[in-house]
């Protein structure tokens, strides 16, 4: 199953809508609750990052019987120092983002914690592409 969504930069009132929709789809596909939770937490963190830090982007999800693949791609401005950005507590969040309850520098670390495989392609003045893979080792999807 393949689904794709647009995410608007700065649209905080709708941040999380894509994750909510995907959660509904995963429930319909009968994934186990533990799988759904880690997939959706990682996706939500990534979605908020696109809203908060990028010029906007897309989220695509591929759900297979054995795995879920999610690509989160924005159009920039990119992360100049990825190692630093992966450090818990490091953040470039604006006051507006902090008012939303985010921007504590835990997002990427939380994404890494919840994914089985994570690849991030980024750089200064470049788009950011986050590829998150989740194994459904116990065959929790019956779709």
């Amino acid at each position: 199953m393949h689904v794709s969504f647009q995410v608007q930069a700065g649209d905080f009132s709708n941040a999380g809508k894509v994750s909510s929709t995907v959660k509904g789809i995963l429930k319909q596909l009968n994934l186990g609750p533990a799988h759904i939770k880690r997939i959706i937490v990682a996706l939500y963190e990534a979605e908020v990052n696109v809203v908060a830090h990028s010029y906007g982007g897309t989220i695509t999800c591929e759900v297979e019987p054995e795995s879920v693949d999610i690509m989160v791609c924005d159009t920039g401005p990119g992360i100049p120092d990825l190692d630093l950005a992966m450090t818990e507590g490091w953040s470039t969040a604006t006051p507006e983002v902090r008012e939303m309850g985010f921007g504590a520098g835990m997002g990427l670390a939380n994404i890494r914690k919840n994914t089985d495989r994570l690849a991030i392609d980024t750089g200064e003045d470049k788009p950011t592409r986050i590829h998150m893979c989740f194994d459904l080792a116990d065959g929790a999807t019956h779709a």
Binding site: S13, S19, K37, E45, M100, G101, F102, A104, M106, N110
Partner: peptide, 26 residues
């Protein structure tokens, strides 16, 4: 801090917060 909430594994939780915006519900 919503990112802190997102690290929790347990489900059976009462969230106590002063953050009153959409992201608290999300």
């Amino acid at each position: 801090l919503m990112s802190d909430v997102l690290t929790l594994l347990a489900d059976d939780i009462l969230l106590i917060t002063g953050l009153s915006n959409n992201q608290a519900i999300r």
